[in-house]
C-alpha cells in the first residue's frame, strides 16, 4: 500500500457517499481524468477512451472503507480483493477463475503457482492467500480429481 492510499484510509464515512457526488475530488480515472472531464464531447473528440471508464484500485479501496463504515466487513473485503484484481489482465483473470473450478487443477501445486503469480506479478497478496486457502481445502476434499 502506498502512502497516498494510506492517507485515504482515514476518516471516510457513509457521509462521504456517494463519492461521485460528495467527494468528486477523490474520484479520478485510470488515466488521471476527473469525472467532470468524462463528457460526451470528450468521447466524441477521442480525448477519453474506455480505459478512462474503468474502476481504479483506489476507488475500490475507498468503497471498501465506506462498506466497513456501514457495517459490512465482508463486502469491504471483497472490494479489497477486487482492488488487487484491477490490474490483472482479463486472460489471467479468466484462467485463474477456471483453475479454481472443480477438477480443473490436477494438483495442489497448480493452484499454488496461480497464487504465486497473483502475489508476485500483480501484488495481489490478499487474493493469493485466498487461492492458497482454496488449495488446502480442495486437497482435503479431494477436488484434484478427474471430472470430465
Amino acid at each position: 500500500m502506498t502512502q497516498d492510499e494510506t492517507k485515504f484510509r482515514t476518516g471516510l464515512s457513509v457521509a462521504d457517499y456517494p463519492l461521485a457526488e460528495k467527494r468528486p475530488d477523490l474520484v479520478v480515472s485510470a488515466r488521471q481524468k476527473d469525472l467532470a472531464d468524462l463528457t460526451l464531447e470528450a468521447v466524441e473528440a477521442g480525448a477519453v477512451a474506455l480505459e478512462d471508464f474503468r474502476i481504479t484500485p483506489r476507488a475500490l479501496r475507498l468503497q471498501a472503507e465506506i462498506a466497513e463504515a456501514a457495517g459490512r466487513p465482508t463486502l469491504a473485503k471483497n472490494f479489497e480483493r477486487a482492488a488487487e484484481l484491477v490490474e490483472v489482465p482479463q486472460g489471467t483473470l479468466l484462467q485463474t477463475y477456471e483453475l479454481l473450478r472443480p477438477g480443473r487443477a490436477k494438483s495442489k501445486s497448480e493452484l499454488l503457482d496461480a497464487a504465486r503469480l497473483l502475489r508476485e506479478r500483480y501484488g495481489a497478496a490478499i487474493m493469493a492467500d485466498f487461492v492458497e486457502q482454496a488449495a488446502e481445502v480442495y486437497e482435503r476434499r479431494g477436488l484434484f480429481t478427474y471430472r470430465f
Binding site: I55, R101, M127, R147
Partner: peptide, 22 residues
C-alpha cells in the same frame, strides 16, 4: 455446488473479478 461446476472459492473469485471491472 460441484455439479454447478464451481466452488465457494471460484464463485468468490468471480465476485471480486466483477467488482474489479466496476
Amino acid at each position: 455446488f460441484m455439479d454447478g461446476d464451481d466452488t465457494p472459492w471460484s464463485k468468490a473469485f468471480l465476485a471480486a473479478a466483477y467488482a474489479s471491472r466496476g
